[in-house]
Design a protein around this nucleic acid. Structure first.
Lengths: 198, 198
DNA sequence: CCATCTTTTGGTAGTTACTATCACTTCGTA
DNA sequence: TACGAAGTGATAGTAACTACCAAAAGATGG
């Protein structure tokens, strides 16, 4: 048992594993896109990646997990922590998200959009979505709590995080949705949700 | 094909169907509680309800759907619509929820709590939870939009609804959670999420 | 009351995601 | 080069679901 630090670019074994994992995910997502989620079987994905079905399950605990990606978490946290402390929590969150989104390539945004659409469309994947949702609340709560010097499970901080993520999620079903909608939603929340009768 | 109004207390057939459905759900939830969700098979549920596995799937499209209940939707909508229009949308939502919760028996609340815990604990059920979550956003948005004379898919109204439901959901993970926490969360949201450094 | 039509049901035979296990191969290392 | 560890494939099994068909039971007109 090694120290489990980072195996990044070591032996052939690690490299091969990384390649197999990437191949499985890429072929999986491609097949999902081409023929739909249900119509794609593990066998097909394994075959496309040139491994056995057994091996698939050694890399991903389930078919759904192919879609689960949390690459952006660390980036978001970092972006938030560099926000000046003068900003209110809600504005800091908004600006952190804006910064991260601005830093993505069009391709990244495209892929992320496709992932979200897939999750919305396929019932099985909505479990994944709920998990992501809860994870995001935890993440926002933790990071905001730290900034305010409150405990991580502070009631008000968690409600704040829930409202932020809920506002963001509410934009997911907009047909023509772009990432600016997410920012608009947070702006509206920052303004105190000023709804008035027209 | 009849007029699909309400078959409520008609022929023997309807009554028997209602009984079978209730038996399947009750035995299912009981078995989930007693032996866990995974350990309970459709076969066991069907056997307990004295029908065949085939019949189970005629009543519920999947095992998960046993847990899905939306009895409260109509009640909540009605409670909201009787709120005086002077109240701001957020206060009206809060008070409507408070009224509904106050109207439940302790038993109802207990059962509802158990359902939510089950959904949080079992991965497969979180898909159901996400669906419920989206349905709740839609419901709040629709009802608030009507009150404000805006279209049902109005951007600001949807963000409002997302924030409300997000705030409510954020309280789900509190270990000692009671239904008052949901109201506290909405109060905090109504106050504009006033987070300040201590 | 009976014949008939419709709905509901049980059974059988799939498919697919996923688990467990075991022998075999491949890689890292002394 | 020999040995241990890690990765792989194959096989057999479980359980959620689907499609289908024939039998049973409730509804309906004469």
């Amino acid at each position: 048992m090694s120290s489990s630090a980072e195996p990044s670019t070591t032996g052939l074994r690690e490299r091969k594993k990384a390649r197999t994992r990437a191949a499985l995910r890429d072929h999986g997502l491609r097949l999902f896109r081409e023929q739909g989620y249900h119509a794609t079987t593990i066998e097909q994905i394994a075959e496309a990646a040139e491994v056995s079905p057994s091996t698939f399950f050694r890399y991903f605990p389930s078919k759904e997990d192919i879609v689960l990606v949390d690459d952006l978490d660390a980036v978001l946290i970092a972006a938030f922590e560099t926000q000046p402390t003068e900003k209110s929590p809600i504005v800091a969150v908004r600006d952190a998200i804006a910064a991260v989104l601005a830093g993505l390539t069009d391709e990244d945004r495209e892929r992320e959009q496709q992932r979200q659409e897939l999750m919305l469309a396929v019932p099985e994947l909505r479990a994944t979505m709920m998990d992501e949702f809860r994870r995001n609340i935890d993440m926002v709560a933790e990071v905001v709590a730290r900034r305010l010097g409150r405990p991580a499970n502070d009631f008000e901080v968690r409600v704040f995080a829930g409202a932020v993520i809920g506002a963001a999620i509410s934009t997911f079903e907009i047909p023509t949705r772009s990432y600016e909608d997410t920012l608009r939603a947070l702006d509206f929340l920052a303004a105190g949700l000023p709804l008035v009768t027209d």
